[in-house]
Design a protein around this nucleic acid. Structure first.
Lengths: 137, 137
DNA sequence: TTCTAAATAAGAATGCATCTAATCTTTGCG
DNA sequence: CGCAAAGATTAGATGCATTCTTATTTAGAA
């Protein structure tokens, strides 16, 4: 709330609504999804505002865009962590950041200065693994 | 060449040209880039054919799509490996696959069955790191 | 050579994201 | 409080990347 003002931005109702809707959301929504969700209660909202606000929030470090192929998703969890993506249902889960040992790897890329490492675990979530197995019987 | 026939596909000149242009290419081209490159020598080629062929080649395991944000790129190197992306010039470099120790991590994601792990190293390539430093002086 | 299934070409259609220009709002100030 | 100026919002246009559609062409088998 004052986070916006602190960043020198005006605290508009649109921005507050988007921020409120995203924070605590663990589904990693796309801009479209946020737009649709909010549009019901806020009929004049436009997609451009959603995109603008999301990039402002990203600049302020209040969320982080995640690119996994397909539309960009947004994660309100800005602490370092990785993602697990289900190949079947597409759900995305946060995963604890890789351990320190793994980070040391960044030194080994001769010449290339690694700034951050993204890790994407692709596979099957518990639900889908279960139903795929059920279908096989 | 017979790879196509072996997969039950017709060996058209378009497919051969695309396959030839992609194999050994370390620049990770997009479909558009391949199209433009080939279009000069093959004026009737259409983008749809490039996309179709690339997905056929992907199915045959002769290349692999890499999604890093922006247009999809294609890598003729199908051996397991990771990628380093320069934030400044956008160049993508192949990087040796993470060591075995790191792979064991796939067990630790309760419930989630990891099939593969993608790692993206983001930072600055040697050239850009050098010129950024030069500019700073 | 002829036939058929498969592939290609060209452009339309779709989806995501950004841009544009006109119209509002917030907010600082008198 | 009321105003002005800067900044935000809106709606729609625009720009890419990708997929789809349909008519035409071609590879490869008989």
């Amino acid at each position: 709330m004052e986070a916006l003002r602190g960043a020198g931005l005006k605290a508009t109702s649109q921005r507050l609504a988007i921020l409120r809707s995203l924070s605590g959301d663990e589904t990693h929504p796309t801009a479209q999804e946020l737009y649709e969700r909010l549009h019901a209660h806020f009929p004049t909202l436009s997609v451009a505002t959603v995109y603008n606000t999301l990039s402002a929030l990203t600049r302020m470090q209040r969320c982080r865009p995640i690119e996994l192929g397909g539309p960009i998703r947004f994660d309100p969890n800005v602490a370092p962590h990785d993602h697990a993506v289900c190949e079947l249902c597409g759900k995305i889960r946060d995963v604890a950041a890789a351990p320190e040992a793994e980070r040391r790897r960044r030194r080994s890329l001769a010449g290339f200065r690694v700034q951050r490492v993204e890790r994407i675990y692709r596979g099957r979530c518990a639900d889908c693994a279960r139903s795929a197995q059920a279908a096989r019987q």
